[in-house]
Design a protein around this nucleic acid. Structure first.
Lengths: 213, 213
DNA sequence: CAGCCGGTAGTCAAGTTTGATTACTGCTAA
DNA sequence: TTAGCAGTAATCAAACTTGACTACCGGCTG
């Protein structure tokens, strides 16, 4: 599972109707181009692909008012809405190391009811714990981890990062159970996209200093 | 940077001369198919690509002794050796979240001298610390992180995972400075590939239970 | 001894990602 | 007034990834 579909569905759904550049801007507003594959090519590709699959409805629209080639507006369909929630739930349970998917799910998290989110996150933690013991039991030789040599450090890295991920998840659960944020069915929904003509305060994202990416 | 090239170069270099299936087996021995894109298609693709780019030398060889189509053997060139060390160093400094690249580098780490490894890892930590303060300064609004709403949790996740990554790296530095493992120029090099006809004890990798990947 | 199963070795089509490039507009400085 | 620049919007080729598939050999089984 890649994060791009969830991100794009989120943006289109929030707008009701959106063209590619709008989606692109929203995702930049989220900083998604920093931590996911949400770059122009991928976004336009995902829109077309999902339109072909019936998750989005494409409307050919007159040339834009602001220069550039004619643009296509997209609307989410019922199938798309269903897929959106499927991906969102999956992103919260899946305990592998891909931060982009989890980040995307995190951004959409308030579209689910609070109780369900807590349940999904607990499933996530349980999965990580099971994975941890499976890995350590399977890979650690009987005569101690030192026998693996430096290769053991790879496993060490995985386990460390799983542990740290589980710890973070537990913290999030606590915050949510403690009443943080506003979830589905709890009044005024939060708006996570830029309005027409609104400026993006984070446009350039994280300042690039000697970029290692 | 993807991990596949580093992994493939490593395997070919260790063998002196290797065909695709051999590389594939070595990487499975490492468990690399679990945590990277080291799957058949990618491996054969990488071999061909790198041969085209002069990093590997391809030898057409008679049909294999053990059935199956004729196979191609590859040998690393000087350019390939150079690229191998370049990628290896890069994988150790780069502080973004991609675990596969770091894992691949970790596997090859003993091909560098101990002192250089320590230096590279310190650079890694420094980079993470700089990144952390850049992100927090840039993204946290003046009126407190609470203003971001649940979106702040994305940043929280990044920062948490950067901190945990830095902590892990510091631990590794300590172990290496403390004399762990055998590095380049310190005698008997460690052998990380399967010999001819040797069996892979980890063939199936991590047991898949209710796979979430 | 025919059939088929498991291991060896690699190919392929379909989909995704990347980074560069195109194409158009309005503004503005010389 | 016109050349150029910044911004808007999208496309494209090339590279990469995925998962399924082909093809071939040898041994075992009924």
């Amino acid at each position: 599972m890649s994060a791009i579909r969830l991100l794009v569905l989120f943006a289109v759904r929030q707008h009701g109707r959106a063209h590619g550049y709008q989606v692109r801007n929203d995702l930049e507003y989220w900083g998604a181009h920093e931590w996911s594959t949400a770059k122009p090519g991928s976004i336009y590709h995902a829109l077309k692909q999902m339109a072909k699959q019936g998750l989005l409805l494409a409307h050919e629209v007159a040339p834009s008012t602001a220069g550039g080639p004619p643009r296509t507006e997209y609307e989410i369909t019922d199938a798309g809405r269903e897929e959106y929630f499927r991906l969102l739930r999956e992103s919260l349970i899946t305990y592998d190391q891909k931060m982009d998917v989890l980040s995307a799910g995190l951004g959409s998290i308030v579209d689910l009811p609070r109780a369900e989110v807590v349940e999904l996150l607990k499933e996530r933690v349980a999965g990580m714990e099971a994975w941890r013991s499976a890995v350590t039991e399977h890979y650690v030789p009987e005569d101690g981890p030192a026998q693996l040599g430096h290769i053991g450090e790879i496993m060490n890295l995985w386990v460390h990062s799983a542990d740290s991920g589980a710890e973070w998840t537990r913290g999030l659960i606590k915050r949510i159970e403690g009443g943080a944020y506003t979830f589905a069915g709890e009044g005024e929904p939060w708006v996570g996209v830029l309005g027409e003509g609104e400026e993006n305060p984070y446009a350039t994202g994280i300042p690039d200093e000697g970029d290692t990416h």
